[in-house]
Structure formats: C-alpha cells, structure tokens
Nucleic acid binder design. Structure first.
Length: 281
DNA sequence: ATACGCCCCTGGTGGC
DNA sequence: TGCCACCAGGGGCGTA
C-alpha cells in the first residue's frame, strides 16, 4: 500500500492525536511483525510523552520524551485506525499493536500481510539506523535535484523505472508513483538509467515532485488497504494516468488500442509498470 | 556497486 | 460452489 504520499497522509492524521499526549498503555499482541519487535517494546513506550510525528521516506518517526524514537514501516498492508476510547471495537486477528493515549484516542495498528515492522532507536543514533542510513534525499526537498539524480544514475544500465524505485535514489518512491512520474515526465520506463541527464533529469525531477505533491493533497491512493487514521480513503487512485490502466487510452496523447497504442503493462524487476509507448519514447 | 530472482505473508479476484 | 493460479502498494537477502 503505502508509498510516500500514503505514509505522509497517515502522519498528518496521527500527528494531532499524538503530539503532546502521553502513551498510557501499549499492547503488542504478537512478538513480531516482519521482524521481531525490539526487546521491551511495549514497556519502553508506555508512559512516554510524544513530542512530534515526522516521516522519512516511508518510515513514520514518532519522537518521544527521553530521546527515544519509535519507527514504523507500514509494509504493504499496514494501517493505523484511530478510535475514541469509548468506542474501541474488538481486536481483529490482524490488529497487532494497540496504543492508548491520555486523552481521547486509541490507535490500532493493523497489518494482515505483516510486511510492516517497528523499531525503537535513540534519537542520537537515528541517522545511523540500518534502515535509514542509506536512504537518498527526500524527493520534496531541494536536495533532490536534477544534478543529484543524474549523478546518482550515471553509469547504471538497468531500466530507469527500477532505478527510481531504489530508496537510495528517491526515498519514499513506490511502484504506483514511479509509473505515474515517468509518464508525467514523458520518459520511457525501459530507458537505461544512466541515460537520464540534462533536460530529461530536470523533467523527471519536476514530475516526481509534482506527482507526489498532488498525491499527498489527495490523501494518497487507496487500492485496498490504505486508510487515513480517521478511516477515510485516499482519492488519488481516481487520478491515475497510467497505473492499473492497461488497455485504456493514453490520457496524454489519446492513442488507443485500436491503433496499437493505449496504456501498456510490463513487468520490470518483478513489479508491474504502466506506460504509454508513444508519449514515453 | 549493480542487477536479478526469490522470499516473507494474507487476501481478493477471476477462470474453469 | 469449489479449487486454484495469479496478483497486490515493500524490501531484504543471496547470488553472479
């Protein structure tokens, strides 16, 4: 599910419920998600105040009093549901972690596929955390620039679609927005990554920023699992130009299947890619 | 370093 | 209705 826009949407939902609150009780219903929970997970969280809720790539970072950071990765199917304390439903079999706060909200982490994971890390060690240390720049920051992208891709022979999914290249990029960004930039997903430079790099960087920005404003994309903590769904799935639209006419050049055009699907590095063969030459 | 295939896990969908 | 193959937003790991 969650790529950068979905994680950012979740962050914005969680922040007002958690910031300035104390985590009164923490229950972990199983000792592991994708990886084992850290030693003393629930005990170390319980009783802590929350300073802020931030995001790095697809990670939620919940800063706590005492210099501790709670890292959450939603994997493919992870989500948080917020319930008023007086109306918490019985736990689903896939509700793995429940947190109550000192005022109002109970947050339930649900993740059927269990590709998500959590960890605890000292604030001072955060940048060296094994899952964070090798991430590239945030795509919505100035550090993600045409110059950075071109330098990062130089010499690489694999397809650019796979290269921009690399979290060291575009931190937080995921499979939906990779296809959408390449379409918006008019860049072929099969183009060797090392040939992205100059104006193409500028177009691709601008497209990534624009697509992610609109997706965040739309609340992300809900294909199946993504929900805001309030339970609302995202809306960006209604604005996909190419993702999941195999056979549909290209919204850019209007080419269609009857004229051997239209949106095509291919598989790169095991993931589906959608594109217009005409517009993305 | 890079590239690729396989794997983790559950559930929904569509074909027969 | 039942069964089954296939697919899904992520990413870690082992192998050339």
């Amino acid at each position: 599910m969650p790529e950068l826009p979905e994680v950012e949407t979740v962050r914005r939902g969680l922040a007002p419920m958690l910031t300035g609150r104390t985590l009164t009780t923490v229950v972990a219903r199983r000792p592991d998600l994708r990886f084992p929970l850290p030693e003393g997970f629930a005990r170390r969280l319980a009783g802590r105040g929350v300073l802020s809720v931030s995001r790095r790539a697809k990670f939620l970072l919940i800063q706590l009093e005492g210099g501790l950071v709670w890292l959450v990765h939603l994997g493919m199917s992870g989500r948080f549901h917020a319930h008023p304390d007086a109306a918490v439903p019985p736990a689903d079999v896939h509700d793995h972690v429940t947190v109550t706060t000192d005022r109002g909200w109970t947050l339930v982490f649900r993740d059927p596929r269990r590709f998500g994971f959590m960890d605890l890390c000292a604030e001072t060690d955060l940048s060296a955390h094994p899952r964070l240390a090798r991430l590239g720049p945030e795509p919505l920051s100035a550090a993600f620039s045409p110059g950075f992208l071109a330098a990062r891709l130089a010499g690489r022979t694999g397809p650019v679609k796979a290269a921009i999914l690399d979290q060291a290249t575009v931190a937080g990029m995921g499979n939906i927005y990779a296809s959408e960004s390449l379409f918006a930039a008019g860049v072929s997903p099969v183009r060797p990554a090392g040939t992205i430079s100059g104006r193409r790099a500028s177009r691709l960087v601008a497209a990534v920023k624009a697509v992610l920005t609109v997706a965040i404003e739309s609340g992300g994309s809900t294909l199946r699992d993504h929900r805001l903590p309030s339970g609302e769904v995202g809306a960006f799935q209604d604005r996909f130009a190419v993702y999941g639209r195999e056979g549909a006419p290209c919204p850019g050049c209007r080419c269609n299947a009857a004229r051997s055009g239209g949106i095509r699907r291919l598989v790169q590095a095991g993931r589906a890619t959608f594109y217009c063969v005409h517009r993305q030459g």
